[in-house]
């Protein structure tokens, strides 16, 4: 295990250094986009997720229901994130007439509707199953 770890350490350091060297010419423009992710996540997203989790835990006492609602929220958040570049096109993006060629708000709404419909169905089925032992 020691040799494996040492090998990983050397390879990892080499690849990181190579990446850094490749990145040097563009570092100024890239840096804000590199730092942005973790800062946004650690300062904003994670605390918010924690607060929502705490609130949800108080509001929904049934554990099965809580698990499914959590899953629905995670799936919805993921779809929303994937949709961001489709819904928000900053002006600096070059005009591209072949794109976008689909109705993204409709797609997002449909995706969210399917997820929550499925969760509602699952919850109804499981609660009725519980009531009939």
């Amino acid at each position: 295990m020691r040799t494996v770890r040492l090998l990983l350490l050397v390879l990892g350091a080499a690849a990181t250094a190579y990446g850094g060297w490749l990145l040097l010419p563009q570092l100024d423009a890239v840096l804000p986009w590199l730092i942005g992710g973790p800062v946004l996540h650690d300062v904003l997203v994670a605390p918010l997720v924690g607060l929502v989790g705490l609130a949800l835990g108080r509001l929904v006492t049934d554990r099965l229901r809580l698990a499914w609602i959590t899953a629905g929220l995670m799936a919805s958040a993921t779809l929303l994130l994937i949709a961001v570049p489709l819904l928000w096109r900053p002006p600096s993006a070059p005009p591209n007439p072949g794109l976008p060629d689909r109705d993204y708000p409709l797609g997002l709404a449909a995706g969210l509707a399917v997820i929550w419909a499925a969760i509602v169905i699952v919850l109804i089925v499981t609660t009725t199953e519980k009531k009939e032992p």
Binding site: V4, G12, A15, T16, Y18, G19, G20
Partner: peptide, 22 residues
């Protein structure tokens, strides 16, 4: 070029991470 360079950063840092957490 940026996506390619940072790919090497991910892989390098991932190997380091695995080395530490193994």
């Amino acid at each position: 070029t940026a996506h390619y360079a940072v790919a090497w950063l991910v892989v390098g840092a991932l190997l380091l991470h695995v080395a530490v957490k193994l």
